[in-house]
Design a protein around this nucleic acid. Sequence first.
DNA 1: AATCCGAACGCAAACGCTTGCGCAACCACA
DNA 2: TGTGGTTGCGCAAGCGTTTGCGTTCGGATT
Lengths: 339, 339
Amino acid sequence: MTVSITDVAEATGVSASTVSRALRGRPGVSEEMRARIVAAAADLGYTASRSASSLASGRTYTIGVVVPYVGRWFFGTVLDAAEKVFSAAGYDVLLYNLGSPEARKRFFTKLPIRKRVDAVLSLLIPDPEEAAALRSLAVPLATTVGGARPGFTVVGIDDRGGAESAVRHLVNLGHRRIGMISGASEPLHWTTPLDRRQGYLDVLTDSGIEPDRALEADGGYTVEGGERAMTELLALRQPPTAVFAQSDEMAMGALRALRRHRLRVPEDVSVVGFDDHELSEVVGLTTVAQPVAAQGREAARLLLAQLDEPDAGPPRPVEMPIRFILRETTAPPHTGRQR
Amino acid sequence: MTVSITDVAEATGVSASTVSRALRGRPGVSEEMRARIVAAAADLGYTASRSASSLASGRTYTIGVVVPYVGRWFFGTVLDAAEKVFSAAGYDVLLYNLGSPEARKRFFTKLPIRKRVDAVLSLLIPDPEEAAALRSLAVPLATTVGGARPGFTVVGIDDRGGAESAVRHLVNLGHRRIGMISGASEPLHWTTPLDRRQGYLDVLTDSGIEPDRALEADGGYTVEGGERAMTELLALRQPPTAVFAQSDEMAMGALRALRRHRLRVPEDVSVVGFDDHELSEVVGLTTVAQPVAAQGREAARLLLAQLDEPDAGPPRPVEMPIRFILRETTAPPHTGRQR
DNA sequence: AATCCGAACGCAAACGCTTGCGCAACCACA
DNA sequence: TGTGGTTGCGCAAGCGTTTGCGTTCGGATT
C-alpha cells in the first residue's frame, strides 16, 4: 500500500540502512549513491514513517505546546510565531489546548505527551505540581508567560516596569485618583497580575498618592470582566478619573462600560491598557506594548538550542523590551467638565 | 529508563498482550485482571508509547490541523473548538501553520503529515493541486471555510445570504450609495469573497440600485487593508453613505479610517461587518454573526464520525445558521447633516 | 609484497507496541 | 462421561525505522 524504506532500497539496489543514512545526510554513503537514492525516494514519493523512526531513534522531532486558550489573541500570536520557528527547523508541533480545568487535569495526570515530544513550550503557568509532572518528562521545557519555575527556560517582560510607565503617565497628566482593573482572581502561580499591581502601587506611593483598595477591581483578564470591573469603579462614591487596566482586553471592556455610561474617553475618564492588542490601535487605546510574537519566536529558539546542545545548561531568563505607546484614550483629568 | 509495557506486565505477572488489551478496553481480559493491570499501570506511571503503538496498529490517534494564521481570531477560535473535541475523544492534534507561501509550499510538497495522522482538518482552502496532495494521504478530510472540494467534508455558512441581510439592512435604512470592502485579492479557490460579493450585488439590483464598481475596494481581510480600502472610498467624488465590509476586521479598519477623517459613525457613514468578531460588540459594530466555534466543533465531530464509521460515505455539507446583529454603527443616511 | 586503513555498504538486532492464532481451563448441556 | 462452546490468556510475528558492528575492497604505507 504505502511506500516504505525497503521499496526505495530495492529500487536503488541497496540496503535499507544505506537508504536511511543517505536520506538523513549521515556519513557512510558516497555522494553518487546518495544522489541516486534521493532521486528514487522522490520518484516513489517516499516519506519516512515518523512512528517507526522515532521508535527506533528515540527522537520524535515534535514539540509539545500547551496553551490555555488558542482562541485568545495573545496565545494565538505566540503560538503562531513559535510554530513558524519549529516547523522551519523540521519539527512538528503537537497542540494541547487546556482551557477548562478538566482538560487541564486530564492532561497533567495522563500526560499523553510522554514519549511523544522532544521538548515542551508551555504558554500557561504550571502550578508546582504540574511543573513537576512536566519535569518528569525529562525534556527541555520553556515558558513565555510570567513566573520563573525551576527547570524552565523563561522568556518574558518586565511587567512591573511596564505597569509603572503606564501609571506614571497618568500621574504626569495630573491624575490623582487612579483605578486599576486587575486579574487577581487568577491562580496565584501566575505572577503577572501581582507584578503589574506592584508597579501600580509603587508609582502611586512614589507620587505621594495613598493607594486605595477600593480602586482595584477584578477583571479576570477578559473583555466582559473589564466591563464589569469598570462598572464597579463607576459606582464608587468617588470614581477614578483614570484607569489602568492590566490588559488591553480589559481596557476595551472598560471603554465599553464607559460608553454605556455616556462618559467620554479621554475627556471624562482616561484609560490605559497593557499588551498592545492587535486591535488597540484601531480603538486608539493608550497602552504599553510587549513584543508578543517575538517572545514566541525567542522561546522556540531557546528550546531548539537546548535540543542541539543538550549539555549546555538551561539558558538564562530572557527579558524582552517593552514600550509605552501614547494614543488617544488618555488626557489630563476633568478637561471634559472644564470646557 | 522509561517504563514500558513489559514492566507493567511483569509487575502484574501477565503477558504484554494482556496488558495491552486490558489498558485499551479490548475484550479477552477478565474484569478482575483488568483492574489489577490498570492499578499497576497507574502505579508505575505507565503511558503507552504512541510511536510504538501506531507503528503496530497503523492508527496514529492524531489529527492534522492546517491553518493559514493561528494568530487570527477566526482561525484561532475554530482551532480552539476543534481541538477540544479531538482531545476529548482521545486524539492529539498536530498543528501546521501555513502563513507564508513558502511554508505552504514546503508543507504540500514534503507532506510531513503522511503516515502521521488519521484525518486532517484544513482551515485553509487548498487549491486543486493541494487538495489532490491531501487526498493522496487517504484519510478523512474536512474543511470549515468556503468552497466545497471533492473528497472534503465541508461545514460552512450561507455567505451569500449573510451578505444579503447586511446590505438589505442598509438599503432599508435608506442608503442608495453603498460601498463594499472586499477581499478580492485573495486566491480564487476561496469562494467566500465571491459569495459575499454576490449577495451584495443581488440586493442592490433587487432594490433598483445600479452596482458601481468604483464602490468596491479591496481590503484583503485585514484591519490595515480595511483602513486603506475605506480611505480609497472616501477619496471618491461621491463617497458612499454606507459600507458593507466583508469581515469585521476590515470593518474595524474602516472605522479607524473614518475616525481619522473626522467622520462620525453612524451619523455620517454607516458601517456593517461580517463574522461577529469577539471585539465587535465592544466597538458596537453592526454585523452578521456566524457560529465560529460551532463550526470547528462540528467539523471535528464529522471527522471523528468518519473515523469510527469508515464505510459510511463522506457526510453531506453542513450549513450553520447565521444571524444579523444590529448594533450601533448603522443609521439612516445623512442624519449627521440633517440635525 | 605484506600490512594497514578508511570508505562504503550490508546484517541483524533492537525500539515498544498490537493482534491473529493457539491452547488450556472451565462451563453447560445432553 | 463425553462433547461443544466460551472465556481468558500467552506466543510470536510483525509494524518501518535506526544503528552498532562486521565485511569487503581499493589504495596508501612500509
